[in-house]
Design a protein around this nucleic acid. Structure first.
Lengths: 236, 236
DNA sequence: ATCGCCCGTATTCCATACAATCTTCCCTGA
DNA sequence: TCAGGGAAGATTGTATGGAATACGGGCGAT
């Protein structure tokens, strides 16, 4: 009975359950609206129901799942309105963070430039590795937000941006949009390097609104019937 | 609709525990750094440890408490840097929300005006009821944020602003500042009524930065030794 | 035929028992 | 006197059983 695999970080069953279920939601393996049954997950993960319950509570707090009293927990599903809300906030928060980063002399401009360059290289290939690209892009944005010096800002952005659909922007870009986005990265580095908060902020705002636009096009294309709602879309 | 429920899970014991402990933290009855022992709380509330544990998990997720592995949960304590981070975000988010509210024709201007008027009345008395004033002020701000139409914006602001020290601004105002603040309320209503987002946003920004300034004065006055840190304070 | 009611089933919710882990403090020895 | 070790106590972390609750199907009445 004591032949349990060692977990990478700690030996807490709750973390195992949390990470595991979370990964399945983010990867799309668990689709929106699906029930998360305590017993099923417990036996499936080889732990008892208690840590699973705790993990589900954290997922609900994260906004990745929804709790229905005496019924259970199901995976949250996101409407176009949700995604527009998220992008609206993201533009506001990330552009502000970028301005602060530009004012911060400790911002690691060299690292940002490296990230931007590697992304450019990948994007110019015939079949870009979008997974790697997304990964590097996340690093780029995280680094900027961290450099703002406001830890809550970082926390809030991460909690908002984790919704699956908003991370994978690149896969929906055409060649011109991809090039534009890469240009934004380099321009942001220059603005931060110059210590110009308004420049940096403006580029970030443009960068994100471009992504928002691509996402909206995607939503409209794959919309079943109703019309995409939400005020303040980028370019209507 | 994907409205995230803030407090009510629909459970019984868990909610009782959550509300009860949360109230004690917000009222200051449970001070920063204090341990939240599961057994103590359980017997004290007349429930078992399980719902208490669940409640503690939610408090940690809310940012009101901190979890130390195998040690327990203790009440979060806030530094001047934390409070400055909070105000920085609050200015950003609430002013944005106010701009959106001004663009929203459904915003209930009459209700806002009633709130502003009642606050004015209270503030002009010789011994203002600061508790009631704070309550009305919270309604005013909540109504504006709700009127933005962005539910996530509302959720984020509420989660950030719940830290005890940021709510009770009025008690630290002198007479002139109080009058100024009341004036802001009325001016915001006029700006929203006029459908002028930039006007409304600007007033909200001024309103909050005035509060920030008062809070900083308070922090400096009651600071034990180290100097208050945090970038971008209102009046340095 | 449809509506309402009862009851069986499935699942959460809470309580409690057990295991793992950290802290404290006493004891020992140089 | 003080450092180190180790056992006892306290507390969290995990497992599991029983109570409460919601859903669905069958049956009967109108």
């Amino acid at each position: 009975m004591s032949t349990r695999e060692e977990t990478p970080t700690g030996n807490l069953s709750t973390d195992v359950a949390y990470q595991s279920i979370r990964a399945k939601i983010l990867s799309g393996e668990l689709g929106g609206g699906e029930w998360l049954r305590e017993s099923d997950l417990a036996s499936q993960l080889g732990v008892s129901r208690t840590p699973v319950r705790e993990a589900l509570g954290r997922l609900v707090a994260d906004g990745l799942a929804r709790h229905e009293p005496n019924r259970g927990v199901r995976v949250e599903e996101w409407t176009p309105k949700d995604l527009n809300e998220i992008y609206d906030l993201r533009v506001l928060l990330e552009s502000h963070g970028t301005a602060l980063a530009a004012l911060n002399p400790a911002t690691d401009v060299i690292w940002l430039e490296q990230l931007a360059s590697e992304m450019s290289l990948i994007s110019e290939q015939r079949h870009p590795d979008f997974g790697r690209l997304t990964e590097l892009n996340n690093s780029f944005h995280s680094t900027l937000i961290e450099s703002s010096g406001n830890e809550r800002l970082k926390a809030v952005v991460e909690s908002i941006v984790q919704v699956p659909l908003v991370r994978q922007t690149f896969a929906r870009y055409n060649q011109a949009e991809l090039a534009l986005s890469m240009g934004h990265h380099h321009e942001m580095v220059r603005a931060v390097e110059a210590g110009d908060p308004q420049w940096a902020e403006a580029v970030m705002r443009a960068h994100l609104r471009a992504g928002w636009s691509a996402m909206q096009r995607f939503l409209i294309a794959s919309r079943p019937k109703g019309r995409a709602e939400g005020r303040g879309g980028p370019a209507t």
